[in-house]
C-alpha cells in the first residue's frame, strides 16, 4: 500500500510537471505590438472576396494582402473593429464577414444551434428516464431470468464489486480480469 501511494504521488507529480512543460510553448505574446495583434484578429474575421471561404489572414492572394494593409492602416488611424468591418461590408456586401451578423434573417444561424442542442438534451433526458422505467414485458423474453429481489441484487453487485475492486484488502478474491 505504501509503495502504491508513493508511485501514485510520483506519477501525479510527473504528469503535472509535464503538463506545465507543455505550457512553456504557449505563454507570452512575444511582444507583437498590440495594434498589429488586433489587426491579425480582425483579418481572421474578414473573407477574401475572390477566394471563397478563405479569410484575408489565410489567403495569399494580392487582394487579401492589400486588404490586410487597409485593416492595419485603419486601425492606426484609430478606427474601431466594427467601423472597419462596416467599411468592407459597404464595398463587398455582408458576405465579406466570415461570421454572419446576428440580425434579421441571419439571426437564425445563431439561434438554431443552441435551440437544437437544448432540445436534444431534453430529448436525451426524457429518453433516459423512459428507458429506466422498469419493463413489464421482460418475463416473456426467452431465457430472461425472473426479476431479482433487492437483497439478491445488492448482494450480487456487492460480490461483483469485491472482485473488481482494486483497493480491496489482500484477503479478497483476486480478480482474473478487470470488468
Amino acid at each position: 500500500m505504501k509503495l502504491r501511494c508513493g508511485t501514485l504521488a510520483r506519477s501525479a507529480f510527473a504528469i503535472v510537471l509535464s503538463g506545465l512543460l507543455l505550457a512553456v510553448g504557449c505563454t507570452t505574446q512575444y511582444g507583437v505590438p498590440p495594434l498589429e495583434r488586433r489587426a491579425y484578429e480582425l483579418d481572421k474575421a474578414i473573407m477574401c472576396p475572390v477566394c471563397p471561404g478563405e479569410s484575408i489572414d489565410q489567403s495569399q492572394n494580392p487582394l487579401a494582402v492589400q486588404m490586410r494593409a487597409i485593416v492595419l492602416e485603419q486601425l492606426q488611424e484609430g478606427r474601431t473593429e466594427s467601423e472597419i468591418k462596416d467599411f468592407f461590408v459597404e464595398r463587398y456586401g455582408t458576405s465579406v464577414l466570415l461570421e454572419p451578423p446576428a440580425s434579421g434573417f441571419n439571426l437564425v444561424v445563431w439561434v438554431l444551434p443552441p435551440l437544437a442542442v437544448g432540445a436534444a438534451a431534453l430529448a436525451l433526458f426524457l429518453t433516459l428516464r423512459l428507458m429506466r422505467r422498469p419493463r413489464t414485458d421482460q418475463a416473456d423474453i426467452a431465457g430472461e431470468p425472473a426479476q431479482l429481489s433487492t437483497e439478491e441484487r445488492d448482494d450480487y453487485f456487492r460480490r461483483i464489486e469485491a472482485v473488481l475492486d482494486f483497493d480491496a484488502p489482500p484477503g479478497a478474491p483476486a480478480p482474473t480480469r478487470d470488468q
Binding site: 473573407m47 458576405s95 465579406v96 454572419p100 441571419n106 437564425v108 445563431w110
Partner: peptide
C-alpha cells in the same frame, strides 16, 4: 444556401462561427 434563397444575398459562415 438558405440565406441566398430567403435574403437573395450570399452570406458566409466561416471559422469564427
Amino acid at each position: 444556401i438558405f440565406s441566398e434563397v430567403v435574403e437573395g444575398s450570399t452570406l458566409t459562415v466561416g471559422r469564427p462561427f
